[in-house]
């Protein structure tokens, strides 16, 4: 198991590549670990986005903000 920088919202793991795999192997796969998994009970007085920004992205708190970039196995 390999992992990226601890603050990254993505984790990488390597996958066994068999000698007779029918399709081109994808040696590394990723999954998302959004920030709420590490927050615990939300502490008071966290920094906030401004209201326009918060309404656009769906959360008031940067601590809960998770970006998602389209990611397709085998390339976009």
């Amino acid at each position: 198991m390999t992992s990226q920088a601890p603050n990254s919202q993505e984790r990488v793991y390597s996958v066994y590549v068999g000698p007779f795999d029918p399709c081109p192997p994808v040696p590394c796969k990723t999954y998302v670990v959004p920030p709420h998994l590490f927050l615990g009970f939300q502490p008071p007085n966290l920094p906030q986005f401004n209201l326009t920004e918060a309404l656009r992205i769906g959360t008031l708190w940067p601590a809960l903000y998770s970006t998602y970039t389209p990611h397709i196995r085998g390339g976009n």
Binding site: P34, H36, F41, I57, G58, T59, L64, Y65, S66
Partner: peptide, 20 residues
């Protein structure tokens, strides 16, 4: 869809807090 995805994250957080 990204907005809706972010809301799922906030909801998950609130349910986790409810457990606490």
């Amino acid at each position: 869809l990204k907005f809706l995805r972010e809301r799922e994250i906030v909801h998950s957080q609130r349910f986790r807090e409810a457990v606490e």
